[in-house]
Design a protein around this nucleic acid. Structure first.
Lengths: 222, 222
DNA sequence: GTCTATAGGGGGATAGAC
DNA sequence: GTCTATCCCCCTATAGAC
């Protein structure tokens, strides 16, 4: 694999172009011909370096997923150490979950395409991408679930799962469909500064997570 | 269009098969050949009834989007009348937003594929589907934004936009990616009863919406 | 109105020259 | 290692028979 002395900017150029074109046109719509043209490399180079288009898609995804989840877990670990054995504040847990992804999404590197790629993975039915998603996010989920369960002891295990799911939905939709928010607010709401978005979404999610669970919420309608 | 005496079960059969196959395999992966075979109609019938595949996709989407948004608005209107001029409780507003879509998603009709289709629309970049989304959801958003602004006068107009966006993200991700929740909770959390899901997500979102807005949330990290 | 046959265009993957 | 040419598949859309 990495035996040859090749500098392999070909491989990197393919990865960068694929990331951009997959995000802007979709996995299927972006053909190998399009992206090798954009990367100014040869068509055959993709099959040489990645065997198949599906493998290229996986390589594009893995390059971003792993670091961002590692950063999240590292930040959570740091907050846990700072708390010195006491439960971490819910706002801190949320910051560890959101900030690394926001930095990627609002940054200038190719990583800003990351959320659009994940959105496609989640939307694509019966795809070979689902296992990747599950594997990469399992450890992250486990860690954040545990932290939340400690901080919110009044919630059952199941309730923590539900609320973490809600939190992830709110966050994910916010960053991946920012254009919807921009349009429906007639341009007044946009994702610009990391800290301003962080403040808003952490306020919302922290309150939701801390809500007293109401067994009687499902009152009959009509 | 509807001048001929045709019973047009052909058209309906295509619509039903397309809805199911688009949802389970994706707009692009489900070919006209697949779905005409599933519908037991002829390949040419699609082009006869819908002109093009893209138009078929739009027809499939419109059939569900319009009714569900009308139901949401109707339910909100009913709650507003019941409130007799006073602001509607935030839980009621959320119920009007969630219940019709949940009924569709957890029901047995073809409508249960609805959320998967919307997920694809949102994930698909630079597509002819985005205008449909924006048009169909504009009126709904306007109405729910207005209701929330009345009920939560302490929030600025922009903050209502942001929080409504968070709410929609939490809800949408919950119903459209229920499989992720099921897996990460090892099967303990599943969408079964409408009222049980409604209770959980309304509790979460109501608390989030009512949270005191904290300008100082974006404290520096590190 | 419905079906068949086919046109016409891309797509991914590969074999073989350099 | 890199590039070119090509194979072969499947797709949408349409023209024309029934």
């Amino acid at each position: 694999m990495s035996l040859s002395p090749s500098r392999s900017d070909t491989k990197l150029a393919i990865l960068d172009a694929a990331e951009r074109l997959f995000a802007t046109h979709g996995f299927r719509a972006a053909s190998l011909r399009h992206l090798t043209a954009a990367a100014k490399v040869n068509l055959g180079a993709v099959n040489y370096h990645f065997s198949t288009k599906d493998e290229l898609v996986l390589a594009v995804l893995r390059r971003r997923i792993q670091p961002v989840n590692e950063q999240r877990i590292a930040m959570l670990t740091r907050f846990e150490k700072e708390a010195g054995g006491r439960p971490v504040a819910v706002e801190k847990i949320l910051e560890a979950l959101f900030r690394p992804a926001l930095q990627l999404a609002l940054g200038r590197s190719g990583g800003r395409y990351f959320v659009r790629l994940i959105a496609q993975c989640l939307a694509e039915p019966d795809s070979y991408l689902q296992p990747l998603i599950y594997e990469e996010f399992a450890e992250r989920n486990r860690r954040f679930h545990a932290a939340l369960a400690r901080t919110l002891p009044h919630l059952s295990n199941e309730e923590v799962h539900w609320r973490l799911h809600f939190v992830q939905g709110a966050f994910f939709h916010t960053v991946s469909n920012a254009s919807v928010l921009k349009l429906s607010s007639k341009g007044r709401c946009q994702l610009v500064s990391i800290d301003s978005v962080l403040g808003k979404i952490i306020t919302f999610c922290a309150a939701g997570l801390q809500a007293r669970s109401a067994k009687k919420e499902g009152e009959k309608c009509k």
